[in-house]
Design a protein around this nucleic acid. Structure first.
Lengths: 119, 119
DNA sequence: TTAAGTGTACCACCACAAATAGTACACTTA
DNA sequence: TAAGTGTACTATTTGTGGTGGTACACTTAA
């Protein structure tokens, strides 16, 4: 399910985060389904449990999963934190957009900046 | 005019940048006025000229001053400051856009929100 | 109650990047 | 030409990020 590419320059935990995000967004892992445990996945990938822990913490921060001490980590549903956080972000973005429109920028200029944004 | 706080965890050059930005925005240093020279300021603060050079390069990048080899560095006028504020807003917006892309939104969705924004 | 499973916290190590220093070069002006 | 200016290059120091080792805390099932 998860693979690490050592030719990839990105840190391991980041690769894990992205891989799980894809799996969750595509519905391969369903809401409320249990994630592999920190230890078992670390064992499987022959890396340190802390690295998986870091990945899971990031997934939790971004609203994809939640973790319960002693029980495990679980996938959150679409309607939950992710959607909520999207709204919060959009609100913040629009607020800033309003301000920058007031000092003379145009919507088109802003849109162009976003289109050209490199990740 | 400039002071360094060694208890401050931020790097020296960053403190210098911020201090000058404040002074310029408040009008304490006027447009076209000459900045202290790299060497004299470095001497005054007992640090390396390169550190001041780095601060000035950053101030130039942000549109606050301009430098001429052999002549010195000078404060830019109001109109360029507006441009600077635009840049700062755009930077903030793009930062948020990156985050919201991270959690699964698309550029198109964001752009649509902006297009539909009522003032 | 206990054992095995779970997430979490803390510290150490290492590699790499950022910050700063040292020095030399290039330009301008009086 | 000399003294002042910004700039470029390299070396060294410092800080940060990523990972590993280990111990702790909690949950669950036997």
């Amino acid at each position: 399910m998860i693979i690490i590419d050592y030719k990839d320059t990105r840190p391991i935990y980041e690769q894990v985060v992205e891989r799980f995000k894809t799996l969750i967004l595509k519905g391969v892992i369903q809401p409320d389904e249990q994630m592999p445990s920190v230890r078992s996945l670390a064992m499987e990938l022959s890396i340190n449990p802390n690295t998986i822990q870091k990945a899971y913490a990031e997934l939790e921060r971004q609203g994809f999963i939640y973790s319960v001490k002693g029980r495990g980590s679980f996938v959150l549903g679409d309607s939950s934190l992710v959607e909520q956080r999207k709204k919060e972000y959009v609100d913040q973005i629009l607020k800033l957009v309003r301000e920058v429109l007031e000092i003379g920028m145009t919507k088109m200029e802003i849109v162009l900046e976003i289109e050209n944004l490199q990740m």
